[in-house]
């Protein structure tokens, strides 16, 4: 972190052989970023393959690929999204007009739209409805610290960002600024996710991205993802 930002190049390696499909990366991400319902940054795809008796389950966590050639960036009509010098693709919530063009352009469907819904919207039903409502409201009042700012949810005629915006995984840049790993890396119980500076030759992430079994999703599109999977 002592290096200037333009000399860093953040990357992530996900070892699918170590992933047990526990979803703790996704849960950690949701808690860290206070994600509302319908917004998800790191879903874990759970595939059942083969036919009985030769069957298997495969897990594929899918954060934003932080592409070197991101197709979501040039489509934005107002330059609300761009690739930082350290390679992380970010969104300026205060500029995004909510046209959702970037959502259509991402070949990994890594962007979601914040419709302004809250966990407490349907919570007051069932046996523990009151408790769920109370908990949901408390959760919603907690601010998110994405991009190092304080975001509180709002509603109304002019929705308060990030409501009405496209949203995506940021590699937890607000944590990186404080020398902390992205939350999904921290919560992974099997150490299946490795994160680091691809410009540092000695780092584990730099060694793993060049392994023979390292693959990128949809490499043929030329998006050059900085998230690589070990298979």
């Amino acid at each position: 972190m002592s290096k200037p930002i333009e000399q860093r190049r953040w990357g992530m390696v996900i070892d699918t052989r170590k992933c047990v499909g526990c979803h703790s990366c996704n849960v950690g991400c949701i808690m860290e970023n206070k994600l509302p319902p319908g917004v998800v940054y790191r879903p874990v795809i759970d595939l059942e393959v083969g036919s009985y008796p030769n069957v298997n389950r495969k897990f594929l966590p899918r954060p934003c690929m932080q592409c070197d050639n991101p197709p979501c960036v040039p489509v934005c009509p107002v330059k609300a999204t761009w690739k930082r010098t350290d390679g992380v693709v970010v969104i300026d919530y205060n500029v995004c007009i909510g046209c959702r063009y970037c959502i259509t352009a991402c070949p990994y469907q890594a962007r979601t739209f914040d419709f302004g819904q809250n966990w407490s919207n349907n919570a007051a039903s069932g046996r523990d409805g009151g408790l769920a409502l109370e908990t949901g409201r408390k959760y919603e009042q907690e601010p998110s610290f994405e991009y190092g700012a304080t975001w509180r949810r709002g509603d109304g005629v002019i929705p308060k960002s990030p409501v009405g915006n496209a949203r995506k995984c940021t590699f937890c840049v607000h944590r990186l600024e404080h020398s902390q790993l992205p939350m999904c890396v921290t919560t992974c119980i099997g150490r299946a996710t490795v994160f680091g500076d691809l410009n540092e030759p000695g780092t584990l992430v730099s060694q793993q991205v060049i392994r023979n079994n390292a693959v990128s999703l949809k490499a043929e599109l030329g998006t050059a993802p900085k998230v690589v999977y070990l298979i």
Binding site: P37, G38, V44, I45, D46, Y108, Q109, Q117
Partner: peptide, 18 residues
């Protein structure tokens, strides 16, 4: 889905936006 299985990876019980 651009990635097979994405539709079942995570759901939205409130607004059904996924």
């Amino acid at each position: 889905p651009e990635l097979r299985g994405l539709e079942q990876a995570y759901s939205d019980p409130i607004g059904n936006r996924l």
